Structure formats: C-alpha cells, structure tokens
Amino acid sequence: HNLTITQGKLFFHYNPKLCLSEIHKMEEVSGTKGRQERNDIALKTNGDQASCENELLKFSYIRTSFDKILLRWEPYWPPDFRDLLGFMLFYKEAPYQNVTEFDGQDACGSNSWTVVDIDPPLRSNDPKSQNHPGWLMRGLKPWTQYAIFVKTLVTFSDERRTYGAKSDIIYVQTDATNPSVPLDPISVSNSSSQIILKWKPPSDPNGNITHYLVFWERQAEDSELFELDYCLKGLKLPSRTWSPPFESEDSQKHNQSEYEDSAGECCSCPKTDSQILKELEESSFRKTFEDYLHNVVFVPRKTSSGTGAEDPRPSRKRRSLGDVGNVTVAVPTVAAFPNTSSTSVPTSPEEHRPFEKVVNKESLVISGLRHFTGYRIELQACNQDTPEERCSVAAYVSARTMPEAKADDIVGPVTHEIFENNVVHLMWQEPKEPNGLIVLYEVSYRRYGDEELHLCVSRKHFALERGCRLRGLSPGNYSVRIRATSLAGNGSWTEPTYFYVTDYLDVPSNIA
C-alpha cells in the first residue's frame, strides 16, 4: 500500500525493539523526510534493546553428524571492536523451508527459537588472519532439518551509529543413524509349514526405512522333555500350542467401542483428552525405555581390526524358502538304536541362519518350516543398504507352526516275539517326523474274553527296548493296539495285532 503524509511529521519514542533503520525507511515511504526535528525521533529510546544489523554474515563451514552440527561463519568486528559482546545463534526444527525470524513471537518477546549466546573469538592483530567464530550444536535429532541463523550482539553506541551483522536463515539436516526397533511384532501360524509375521514401523526411523531383515531359527525343545518319565503317576503330560491366527481386521481397528449394538453396526467412541494424553505418555515412556535398553543392555560386537582377528559373527547367506525346513542338525536320541526319531534339535552355532529381506511392506510369510516346531524370529529395521547396512537392534518374537495331521501315527506293522515265561516283546517304529517329539506310547492289549488293559511306555523305555515287553501273560489269544502321544496330543491307534500265548508248562520236552 502507498502511504503519503502531505502535512505533519513523524514522532517515535520509547520503541526499544524498533531499529532506527526501520524508522528511516518509514520517513522515505511516507514522504516526511526532512520535516522531523532532532528530538522527534529519539536516538536513545528507539532500538536500544534490539540488534540492528546492516551487514550480512556468511557461514564459512558446515559439518553434520547424526546428532551434531558444527558451524563456522566469517569474522565480524565493528569499528570499535570492544562493542562486540558476542553472537546469538538461533535454531529450531523446520520440516519445511518457510521459516521466518519472527515465527511464534508474542507480545512478551518470546519466540519459538532456541538461542545460544556465543563469546567472540580472540581478536588477531592481523586483519587478514582473524579467527572464524563458530559453535557445535549438540543433542539434535537424527535425520531432522533445522533452520539456523546467527547475528551479532553489540553494545549501545553513544554516537548512535547503527552497526551489526546478521546471516540469512539456512537449512541444515542432520545425518541418518540406526533406527529404533520395529514396533509390535506379531507372529502367527496359518499352516503346519508357515508363519505369518506382521509389525509396525519404528517410532524413530532416523532416516528413510529402506528394508527390513527377518531372521528365523528353529528352537530346540526343553531338555526336561527328553529326561522326564511322563508315565509316572502324578506327572502331567506336557503340551505345546501353536500360535493362533490373526483376529479379523475389524476387531483390530483402534479407537473402536468394545460393545456392539445388537441391531447392527455401531460407531466408534472418540477417545477423551485424558485417554489420548495417557497414550502419549505411555508411548514416550516406551521410547525412553527402549533407548535405555539399547544403550545399557546391548553391547556392540567388536569388529575385526587390522591384526587379522576374525569377526566372530557368522556370515549372512541367503537361502531359498524351500530350504528352511531342514535348518537344524538332527541327532538321534540314543545312538545305539537307529530307529528312534531325530527330534532332539541342538543347533550348531556355526550354522548360517536363513533370512529374508523385506522391502516396502511390514509383513512376511515364512514358508518351508517344520510342522509343530518353535521358531525364534528376529526382526531388524534398516535405513541404508549400501555401502553397508545400517540397521536397528533386533526385536524378537516366537511362534510355533501348526501340527501336521497323521504325523504322530505309527507307520509300519507292530511285530512281536514270544519268549519263555510268557513274555512277549512288542516292537514298532517311532514316527519319523512327529509333531514336536514323542513323549510316550500307549499300549492297549486284551486277552479274548477279558477286559482291555493299558500300559504306558516312556520315551526312554522305548529307546532301550525298541518297544516294550509284556510279562506274566496268561495263555490265550491276544490283540494289541499302540498309539503315540506327542507334544500336540495323541496320534491314531494302530491296526490290531494278534498273537497267541501258550502255557509254557505244557511245552513238550526233548528229553527222552
């Protein structure tokens, strides 16, 4: 807008934040220059609390790290170098490059900038070799853009010569660093050979998330399962459950009422301010606690030095998902009996873990797994792929695949051998790939016309006998059925096997 004052003059007093240069501009645009008398524009009460600059400061050096910015700028000295009290560095987070010096300023003089007072450097006698002032900004957020400017702080001049310097606002972004852990990993099994893994992005990506790394490792069953005799009275049979499938998407929606109208769909109840505040506090606490764990609990591995020492970490090797089922080394339970199943799973520490690289999504279907087997899954978020990966501390989750139908069934015939004193040795093959492992066998036998009897055969007993022995049988026709019990439950009964026990007292003698 054009402003013209045809008559009258300007009068400025007691404006401590208004620089004289701005008042002189007002004289020019209003056409009143030359009308004012000496005392109409006070030299001592206008701009006496402001830094009124008329020179431009330029930054000469900028260096960044993930949490620091090192700045240096060209030296500046007023005509009387004693008038320079120091520099004021202003900075704040700036997602967009549209910041002005006066953003967030209120009537009390406060604003949204963080201000650092910096002492002037030592003055050199040689004007050509003056030290460049600077400042190291610490405690910054990774991968965050900051708006920065600097200006001088000078003393009051009796001659009211307006001098000083100020830089333009520059924008500097800190470097990326390792992201925080992925949030809320959930693993479920939808079949006997697959596990579905879902997660949420890290709360602090500290860069642009480029991919996720998912490692999985087959877990050995508890050692007590191999040692305890679950045929003993009072000892509860062990059981394991597989990871249940995901709930429906509708039930997972946030901010939804727990109660549904019987007449149909209901609208979600909005969260109160107290609920939102509580969630923010919980989120802040979780982030602080995660940072504490990362800094205190997890110790970084030592990389190899120039002395030739090897990095103890196993090298990563990509495998196809079809090879995942046989990740671990199978060892027989008892070496003397080769027909026992290889369900003991000690994992070799030198073995390469299978892994998958996930790009542009937060889910993965891990296939080719062994049925009813526990897996430990390790999830890392990465925001750099080359020249070397920059990934987060791992988040861990466990899951067990679903049982395989008929995996616990005894394959092959049940054979028998009759000894003296009416002892019958029953023999059968253990299931080759049971659900988890076989903890015991149930032997059901009966003599024709009598009630059915049951015998429990422990895992250890089966390994020693290759089956079991029935003792003290009365003469007669017998039928026997056997079924295995694994961590997933009972298998199917075998087809009945028949044998006849004679009275050993009636056996004919070869003595003449």
Rank of each mutant, 00 (worst) to 15 (best):
L470P: 02
V331K: 13
V359T: 12
E495N: 12
R313A: 15
L235P: 07
V327I: 06
G472E: 08
V359Q: 12
V214G: 13
D409F: 14
I276T: 04
E279R: 05
L213T: 15
C269T: 09
A330L: 03
T333G: 13
G264L: 11
A405Q: 03
R301M: 05
D408G: 02
T340Y: 11
E281Q: 13
D311K: 09
V397P: 06
Y478G: 00
N208S: 06
K406W: 09
T307F: 07
P475D: 05
S268A: 00
V480N: 00
T386K: 07
S492Y: 05
N383Y: 03
P245I: 12
K361M: 10
V358P: 09
N477A: 13
F499V: 14
T401D: 01
H352R: 08
S398E: 02
A395R: 05
S444M: 07
S341L: 09
S315T: 12
F499N: 01
A407I: 03
Q429G: 15
P245M: 06
K287R: 02
Y396S: 04
A335N: 11
V424C: 07
F285K: 10
G449P: 11
Y448D: 04
E452S: 09
S284P: 02
N477L: 11
H211T: 08
E350Q: 08
F215I: 13
V299S: 03
A330D: 04
S342C: 11
V334G: 15
L232I: 13
V414M: 08
R318E: 11
G306P: 14
I482L: 10
P300R: 02
C391R: 00
N422R: 13
N477W: 10
I511F: 15
V411C: 14
H371Y: 09
V327T: 10
T272R: 08
K406F: 07
A484G: 14
G207A: 07
L369C: 12
D323V: 06
P270C: 03
A309E: 09
Q429F: 14
L455F: 08
C468F: 09
E290V: 01
L364S: 09
G449D: 10
G476I: 01
P475H: 11
E350V: 09
Y498P: 06
V331R: 09
F355G: 11
P434L: 01
D311E: 14
T373C: 03
D273A: 15
S284R: 07
A399Y: 06
P338L: 09
P338T: 10
Y396P: 04
G234D: 04
T241S: 05
T241F: 15
V423A: 09
G412L: 10
T303R: 11
N422C: 06
D408A: 03
T210V: 15
C267E: 08
T401R: 01
E227I: 11
D291N: 15
N326I: 10
E217N: 13
D261P: 15
I276F: 04
A335V: 12
R459G: 12
G476C: 00
F419L: 13
V296M: 12
L437Y: 15
Y478N: 00
H294V: 02
H454L: 08
H211G: 12
R469N: 14
I482M: 03
F499D: 00
K271I: 06
L505G: 13
P431Q: 03
D450T: 08
Y292C: 01
Q275H: 07
Q380R: 02
R400I: 07
E282F: 11
N208G: 04
T494I: 02
P354M: 14
L280R: 09
R376W: 14
V297Y: 05
S509P: 10
K357Y: 13
E451P: 15
D291Y: 02
V414G: 02
K317Y: 08
K460G: 10
H416A: 07
L225V: 05
D291K: 02
A394L: 05
G306A: 08
L225E: 05
Q384L: 09
S398T: 15
Q384V: 10
T333M: 11
G234I: 12
W216K: 15
V501Y: 11
H371T: 15
V393T: 04
C468W: 09
E351R: 12
E282D: 15
C267W: 01
G306T: 14
Y292R: 05
D323G: 00
L235A: 08
L225A: 04
R319T: 13
D506G: 10
I377C: 09
V327M: 09
N383R: 02
V443C: 03
N360C: 15
Y230Q: 06
S363E: 12
A381S: 08
V443P: 03
M402S: 13
G489M: 07
N326T: 05
D222Q: 13
W216F: 15
V480F: 09
C231F: 03
L470W: 04
S274V: 08
N255D: 07
C456E: 13
P314R: 15
E221Q: 13
I410G: 02
S444N: 07
F289C: 04
T241K: 15
S283F: 10
G264M: 09
P332Q: 14
V480T: 06
Q219C: 10
G476H: 00
S305L: 13
A336L: 11
A407C: 01
G374C: 08
Y396M: 08
P434D: 01
L505E: 08
S268V: 08
G489W: 15
V359S: 08
R447H: 08
S341V: 12
Y445G: 00
H461D: 15
G374Q: 07
A395G: 09
N435W: 03
P403K: 03
N490S: 13
V365P: 09
S509Y: 13
